[in-house]
Computed example of a mutant assay.
Amino acid sequence: MDTVTLQRELRAFAREAGIDKIGFTTADPFREMKNRLRRQQESGYQSGFEKGSLDERTDPALLLEQPESIIAIAVAYPSKLDDAPKGKKGARRGMFCRASWGQDYHDVLREKLALLEAFILERVPGARLRSMVDTGELVDRAVAERAGIGWSGKNCSIITPEFGSYVYLGEMITNIPFEPDEPIEDGCGDCTLCLDICPTGALIEGGRLNAQRCIAFLTQTKGSLPEEFRTEIGNRVYGCDTCQTICPKNKGMHNRIHEAFRPDPELAKPLLEPLLNMTNREFKETFGHMSGSWRGKNPIQRNAIYALGHFREQSALPELSRILREDVRPYMRGASAYALGKIGTEQAETALRHAESREKEEEVLIEIRAALRRIADQKKEVHE
């Protein structure tokens, strides 16, 4: 089969397989992206989750022998939560980002890429193929941009005319020489809304992100969070959508297309307090099918504690006091101390003082004393 016919049939099959966009590009090295990644590395802006060296992340020839093309795919996901439950006093809720709603997109896109691989191998039995989704070496955004899936927005997301930036990306390197598609013209213009609204200033400039300040990254880290970020996280337990929800190109993009990504409102916006005493097994059974579960329950629980402090939720006092008193994880005790200091009631102060007399870990003692100072300052303000 000639490559022109195969490419045409691949486009048609991709639609049948539930792939919303497919594009083709060369397997040439991504030289400009390599320079950008080097600048990110030198500036200390990387997340640490990146896979592979700079060369491996930008040169397909290091990942597949004699590559000719890369096939890029995009699958849209929903941005609106139907029948969203509302948090209220005594029943506060957290929020998983939209990219974590429904079934883990890594699994869904790998299945779709596997279908493409089978389709190609049936027609070209000797074809060499290598697929990846998000956690592979190649930079998905760079591949998608060059393959005409969308343009690279100032919010560091690929923005498509059809689905906005609410798309998952994947790619396949192959030794088949497909005709490359043309990139899409940048559509951001002089808009800077995403840069202006970023809560922590993580978007340094259009298309450049300091991952170390990005809330989406921070919610996935383990251990304690620097205090400057705790209030900004609000009730987010995983991820952040702010730079996407503000984007004019996402207005009206609901993308209720794939059943696999249909969100369960109770999981997309879970009650915060029940998260605090979940076992590993309970967490896996409840959230294990979501991409937001990949780091386990510890970061989610820590973020839930910060969120309860953010709400100054008094119903959480018994559980926060128990964590401060009994939890074996120092950063969880520290987070609880912080939240108790934000709540600031007499019961919270009593729990903090009892904990101060027993606590041995210096990092937790620092949090307890800072919380007690916060309560003292609040009392002073009231009297003044």
Rank of each mutant, 00 (worst) to 15 (best):
D2M: 03
D2V: 00
T5D: 03
Q7K: 09
L10C: 02
A12T: 11
G18M: 06
G23V: 01
A27N: 03
P29D: 07
E32A: 11
E32T: 12
N35E: 14
N35F: 00
R36M: 09
R38D: 03
R39M: 11
Q46D: 02
F49C: 00
G52C: 09
S53Q: 05
R57V: 01
L62F: 01
L63N: 04
L64P: 06
Q66L: 07
Q66C: 08
A72Q: 02
A74I: 01
P78V: 09
S79R: 15
K80N: 09
A84E: 15
G87E: 04
G90Q: 06
R93P: 00
G94E: 05
M95Y: 14
R98Y: 01
H106V: 01
V108P: 00
K112G: 03
L113F: 08
L115S: 02
A118I: 00
R123W: 03
L129I: 14
V133L: 07
D134E: 15
E137S: 13
L138F: 04
K154P: 00
I159W: 07
G164E: 06
Y166I: 02
M172C: 10
I173A: 04
I173S: 04
T174F: 03
F178K: 09
G187V: 08
G187P: 06
C188H: 07
C194H: 10
P199W: 13
A202H: 03
I204T: 15
E205W: 00
G206Q: 06
G207L: 12
R208I: 13
R208F: 13
N210K: 05
A211C: 07
Q212N: 10
C214W: 04
F217Y: 15
Q220D: 13
S224F: 01
P226E: 15
T231I: 10
I233Y: 07
V237D: 05
C240W: 11
C247A: 10
K249S: 11
G252H: 03
H254A: 12
N255S: 10
R256F: 11
H258S: 04
E259S: 12
F261P: 03
E266H: 10
K269V: 10
P274V: 04
T286L: 13
T286R: 15
M290T: 02
S291A: 15
G292W: 03
G292K: 05
N298G: 04
I300F: 02
I300W: 02
Y306R: 03
F311I: 02
E313S: 11
Q314Y: 01
Q314P: 00
L317R: 10
E319M: 13
S321W: 05
I323C: 08
L324A: 08
R325L: 05
E326Y: 06
D327E: 14
D327I: 04
V328C: 02
Y331A: 13
M332G: 00
A335M: 09
S336I: 07
A339W: 11
G341E: 11
I343Q: 10
Q347W: 06
A348N: 05
A351F: 08
L352V: 09
A355N: 11
R358M: 13
E359M: 08
E359C: 06
K360D: 12
R369K: 14
R369F: 07
A370Q: 14
I375K: 10
K380E: 14
K380N: 12
E384S: 12
